[in-house]
Design a protein around this nucleic acid. Structure first.
Lengths: 221, 221
DNA sequence: ACCTGAACACCGTTCAAGT
DNA sequence: ACCTGAACACCGTTCAAGT
């Protein structure tokens, strides 16, 4: 059998993303990743500078999958498209939002800035002033990241995965009647649908704010 | 000097929360925690069963600080009080939301369920059906957790902490004009104020949904 | 009853050495 | 040019031993 052709950065990142998807952020270790590639852990350092570089690399890849919004669309539609695009891209690779939120991936990479720039552009067009801009971008980002992070944790908005509901098996319906109802409804959850509903509410509020109504504060320029 | 009086679970959790607050979730290790208490790491296992138990313990403590809402208040006010209470409790100890979201703290502890039960109760009173209940609780939780988690990460809604803005120092205002504007506005950020604005928008949308209007979907029972 | 030391199976990372 | 082995400073955790 011929000697395996050499590694390169792309192959390392491919394998790292695959490993992180299947094993989670904690399961992504240099040693396991190396084994996946049929190599010793130290060989990886010829192609990436360290683990943080790997996390940055996979984050950039996933963020590159976020579609940009047609600039011809009205700003509110662009916001919707962008937020949904972020949600969908991160949903496939939940390690990435988790890495960002735990400070293990660079928040200032060009790939990370692109969707935020587009979001901000939409709000500028809507007429938000600087404070309104900050608030609006923060609100959308919070909803996107919060929806994603709670999905994987089984807390709050859990996915249909039944083993994820297992920790709640012991709740007494007599003691927590409302939560028990919620638990039943979680079995029918389509996370993206619920996210879209919340997003539409938020965008409606942003439109009202842009039109000068409360609760949005000073906005018209 | 007299022999130090023995450790107990409460002292371990006190020290653990303090260490996690100052060093972050990754800085909380059994060995460092032990040193803080003037003891060897293995001594901790006499008072907690393992590290997961510590994380659960500090999470429970912080969640116990979430005030419950006066049941005499209208449901929307109760939702507001509860959400703001979660935000404030977690804001002081951001390790806790991070631990929950990375599956390192038990989402089914009584302390964790209490605020969710109260939230759900408010939405039941508002007349939401099961699917509406799930959506509404998920939306509020998502906004709370998203707002908190993005604060600490410096991504999205960053706090005034200037060293947190440092990674963005290299952005070219010509290339990312809207983001640069946002960056300027971040320096004036009061995270809780922005959170409250977003929360008010969401609650207004939930009230509209409860009254049978879109975008909230089927709600009246 | 409470604590320690040594040990095990893991981490990320460096460095000299091999081909 | 690329990979490996040995080593270092860390992890969480177990277990026998000390007081």
């Amino acid at each position: 059998m011929a000697r395996r052709e050499p590694l390169n950065r792309e192959k390392v990142l491919d394998a790292a993303l695959a490993l992180a998807d299947s094993e989670g952020l904690d399961g992504l270790t240099m040693r396991k990743l190396a084994k996946t590639l049929g190599v010793e852990a130290m060989a990886l350092y010829n192609h990436v500078s360290n683990k943080a570089d790997i996390l940055d690399g996979i984050a950039e890849r996933v963020m590159a999958d976020i579609p940009s919004a047609d600039p011809a669309l009205p700003w509110a539609e662009r916001v919707r498209t962008l937020a949904l695009g972020m949600y969908r891209a991160y949903r496939v690779h939940p390690v990435v939002p988790l890495a960002m939120v735990s400070d293990q991936a660079n928040p200032a990479s060009p790939a990370a800035l692109r969707p935020v720039e587009a979001l901000a552009g939409a709000f500028v067009e809507a007429g938000f002033d600087d404070d309104g801009l900050r608030w609006a971008v923060g609100a959308v980002n919070s909803l996107v990241f919060g929806s994603l992070l709670l999905i994987t944790s089984g807390f709050g908005t859990a996915p249909p995965g039944p083993e994820q509901l297992e920790p709640f098996a012991g709740v007494d319906p007599a003691e927590l009647p409302h939560f028990s109802r919620l638990l039943g409804a979680l079995r029918r959850l389509d996370p993206e649908k619920d996210f879209e509903r919340a997003l539409d509410v938020l965008i409606a509020g942003l439109e009202a704010a842009a039109a000068g109504k409360s609760p949005g504060g000073s906005t018209r320029r």
